[in-house]
Every structure is written in structure tokens, then in C-alpha cells.
């Protein structure tokens, strides 16, 4: 929330939409600028890195030209932004193909993987958090809190290595890696272990969040009234409290998705999945700047859009915002 939003007088729903949309559009331009800054302005000479220190002067000049370093930077940024909008993201050095196509193909692995992980972590987090909140101080509660602390501290890629070792190498029940393509009926099976490795720490985090926000709501007067009227504890938690606790959990899930995207990029490398993470590692090794720039912009843009979606979902979840 920025200062302007907090200070705004009674805004209608359309106001809210426009303001948030505008802020997100501005953030997207800034995201593109930061990527541009990293590649063109930051100390370091990308052309030198590309050709190496012992390259001939002509070769170095050619690389500068290829990177567009011979043009003044405001013009370069304007071109880069124009290219992003019009869909011309430049060609990958390594693959000699449009970076946009490579990134788009990577997204078809990374986004489903992150989404599957989010689904798994929510499916684990809600029952655990609800059970913990409805029995405060009891063993379900203490166990959930303890497990959640340990869970959030676990590195995803380490879990992934251990899961591959156990389920794929030792037991041989799930595929150890690779991806057969989406046409294959076994495609989702290949995403299961990586998704589980990614989901576990996030499930721990979300379970804590569900528990904490439910605990807050359960202290409210209307919950006590419902209990006094004879509503069962489970119904109070599941129906009355959950709806009100959902807002902070949705916020948490949005932040989690950003973490999951980044985590997926690492974990893909454990499983040899051909997603954005693998593409990024290849691009870094090949100093493929157009590809890295496109990839970073795309992932950051997805994260901005997810946070916009989360903000707009408040409109559905909290009628107070709608009618204000």
C-alpha cells in the first residue's frame, strides 16, 4: 500500500481497480528498467565478458554493436521497452532463436510446477492450521507450530535431492527426472516429486499463517456468540472464522507463489526439467544476455501480475472494500 492509496478518501470499486492497475503498470516499466540497468549501466563490460579478454579489437567492437552498446542509453532503453511491448525481445546468442519463444516454452514447465506446489501446500496447510487453531495449546497445535518452524527452514533443493534419492533411486516408484512433454499422460507424474519438495517448506509457512489468522479471528465477539448459541467448534472454525481469515492467507499465498517460482527455477535443475531455471543456468554459462534479460523480465512480470491479482481478489473476499 502506498501513501496515496492509504490517504485516498472513499474510493469506489472502479477507483480501486484503476489505481492498482496503474501502479502495477508503473511497476512493470520499473522492472524492465531494472533489468536494463543490470545489463547496460552496472559496472562491468558485457561486451568484454562476452568475447573474453584476449579477443581482437574488431571482435570486441562487433560484440558492442551486437549488444547495442554503441547507442546512447536512453535510446537503448526506449528500444528495449518498445521491443518488450511489441513482442520483439531479441535473439538468444546461444540458441540463435527468439528469446521470447524460449522463455515461453520454459514458462510452460515452471508455472505449472509452481502452481502444483501451491496447490499441494494449501491442501496441507489448511487442515493443519485449522486443527491447530481449534485446539490451542494442545499437542496438535504445538506439533504444527514446531513442524512449521522446522519446515520453513528447509532448503527446497536439499529436500528435492533427498526425495529423488529415496523415491526414485532407492524405491524406484517415481521418475527421477526429465520431462516427457505435455502430450505424455505421465507428464504430471514427472512434476510430482519436484512439486512436493517445493511445497513442503511453503506448506509449513502457510500452516502457520492459517493458524495465526484463525487464532486472531477466533478471539472476536461474533465467534463467542456463535459458540454460545451452540455452534460446534469445527463449524465455527470452518465456516465462520475461515472466511474472515482468508484475506491474510490469500496475501500469504501470493507472496508464496513468488517464492515458489524462484524455488522452482532451482529445483528444476535437480530433476533436469526443461523449465526457466534450466534455461537460466544455460544462459548464464553462455553469457546469453538477451535470453537472461527476457527471462528475468518475464518472471518479474509474472510476479507483479500475481500480486495485482491478489490485491484485486480482496474485492471479492472483503465486501467492505467493495462498498466503501
Amino acid at each position: 500500500m502506498s501513501g496515496a492509496e492509504a490517504a485516498a478518501p472513499t474510493g469506489t470499486m472502479l477507483d480501486h481497480l484503476l489505481r492498482r492497475g496503474g501502479a502495477s503498470a508503473l511497476t512493470l516499466v520499473l522492472v524492465a528498467f531494472l533489468v536494463f540497468l543490470a545489463i547496460h549501466i552496472v559496472p562491468g563490460d558485457p561486451a568484454r565478458v562476452l568475447v573474453g579478454t584476449d579477443a581482437a579489437p574488431e571482435e570486441y567492437e562487433a560484440a558492442r554493436e551486437r549488444l547495442g552498446l554503441d547507442i546512447p542509453w536512453p535510446t537503448r532503453f526506449a528500444r528495449w521497452l518498445g521491443g518488450l511491448v511489441s513482442g520483439n525481445w531479441g535473439d538468444s546468442f546461444r540458441y540463435s532463436r527468439p528469446a521470447r519463444d524460449l522463455v515461453a516454452r520454459g514458462l510452460t514447465i515452471t508455472v505449472p510446477l509452481a502452481s502444483l506446489s501451491l496447490l499441494i501446500s494449501l491442501l496441507v496447510a489448511f487442515p493443519l492450521g485449522m486443527a491447530a487453531a481449534s485446539r490451542p495449546g494442545r499437542w496438535v497445535d504445538l506439533g504444527t507450530v514446531g513442524l512449521a518452524q522446522v519446515g520453513t527452514a528447509l532448503p527446497e533443493f536439499w529436500l528435492a535431492i533427498l526425495l529423488v534419492g529415496l523415491f526414485a533411486v532407492r524405491l524406484g516408484v517415481l521418475p527421477a527426472g526429465g520431462f516427457p512433454g505435455w502430450e505424455s499422460p505421465r507428464a504430471w507424474l514427472h512434476l510430482l516429486l519436484p512439486a512436493a519438495a517445493l511445497a513442503l517448506p511453503r506448506a509449513a509457512y502457510l500452516a502457520r499463517m492459517v493458524r495465526a489468522s484463525l487464532a486472531d479471528v477466533l478471539r472476536e465477539d461474533y465467534v463467542r456468540t456463535a459458540r454460545a448459541k451452540g455452534v460446534t467448534a469445527w463449524r465455527v472454525v470452518g465456516v465462520h472464522a475461515l472466511r474472515n481469515a482468508l484475506i491474510s492467507v490469500v496475501t500469504g499465498a501470493g507472496l508464496t507463489f513468488a517464492r515458489l517460482l524462484a524455488g522452482a527455477m532451482v529445483v528444476e535443475n535437480v530433476f533436469g526439467l526443461p523449465g526457466l531455471g534450466r534455461l537460466a543456468v544455460v544462459a548464464v554459462e553462455a553469457r546469453d544476455l538477451p535470453l537472461v534479460a527476457s527471462l528475468a523480465t518475464a518472471v518479474a512480470a509474472v510476479i507483479v501480475l500475481v500480486s495485482l491479482t491478489v490485491d484485486l481478489s480482496y474485492l471479492l473476499l472483503d465486501p467492505r472494500i467493495r462498498h466503501r
Binding site: 543490470a38 545489463i39 552496472v42 532451482v266 537460466a280 544462459a283 548464464v284 518472471v299 510476479i303
Partner: peptide
Amino acid sequence: AFPAVLAALLLGAVW
């Protein structure tokens, strides 16, 4: 919007 891993990959490609 830039998770640590993403920012590091970007700078790793440049530096």
C-alpha cells in the same frame, strides 16, 4: 518482483 535467485542469475550473466 525480483526473487534473490533471479537477481543473482541476471547479475551472474553480466559479471
